[in-house]
Write a protein that binds this DNA or RNA. Structure first.
Lengths: 135, 135
DNA sequence: CCACGATTTGACAACGGTTCTCATCCTGAA
DNA sequence: TTCAGGATGAGAACCGTTGTCAAATCGTGG
């Protein structure tokens, strides 16, 4: 179930994209990353951003989740281990959390209904302390 | 936080759409519903399907979740209460489940990081017994 | 240090789902 | 039955994402 790190060639573009993700606590869309790179002077094609983001996601280097309107957003994960996120609806800040309780609950509830090969999606969203104070 | 039932006028189309959803345990996309209605002889515009599905979702009459590729899929919920789903990756079959444990965990974990106005998304997917047997 | 085959890139077209537009149709109320 | 305004439908418009393919780039072997 764990992804295999595919053999890939290092390029300036790939590094730039990875760089844009590192050190950011927010989930960002491919378009935002593309714009950020452009604004920074890094000339990288949009298709390249998408391709690399996909590849990184496949290798488990970054996390991908979908916003409410279906857009894919990415974030570099601090850990390779299984985890979930608490995301701020206002600023996008995300913190990683783990919870054996949920994992077990999901597994149990699925089994109870005869499901196998179970996976799950758990994302929590709210207002972070800063954004809440700023109101 | 609970949705207000908006005043809406009953129409043949709206009824047909609601009808296509009732009695189906699967999550279905707007396009699938549109096609199903067309195949059944019901002439309903695609835009109308989208509009009504959105309205119903806003009123909490139907559940909406996003497939892995970002497509929105709908299902009429048996209950108005808060619940989650276990969805079959193969056939789309979905069963509704509840779990206080998760709710509490989500709330606690969010609070622990200073988040407020917390909401969460929890979906479980796997292979239902039938699909698993069919392999 | 250079040539070579394989990858990767980038500009742009193509796509698929969803939303918007606006003239026309219906519905409930009078 | 008439009327005003909400609802519908056909198609254009949108937008995020993926596909195309020639040109640029990379690691390697010579």
């Amino acid at each position: 179930m764990t992804e295999q790190r595919t053999e890939r060639r290092p390029t300036r573009q790939r590094a730039a994209i990875a760089d844009a993700l590192v050190g950011t606590a927010e989930f960002r869309s491919a378009q935002e990353i593309h714009a950020a790179l452009a604004g920074r002077g890094e000339r990288v094609g949009l298709a390249t951003v998408y391709r690399n983001l996909q590849a990184m996601a496949g290798d488990g280097e970054v996390d991908v989740i979908r916003t409410a309107d279906g857009e894919a957003v990415y974030r570099s994960c601090a850990t390779d281990d299984h985890h979930h996120h608490v995301v701020c609806r206002s600023c996008g800040l995300a913190v990683e959390v783990t919870g054996d309780a949920v994992e077990r609950w999901a597994e149990a509830v699925a089994a109870e209904h005869g499901f196998t090969a179970v996976r799950h999606t758990v994302e929590i969203d709210g207002l972070c302390a800063d954004c809440a104070a700023r109101r």
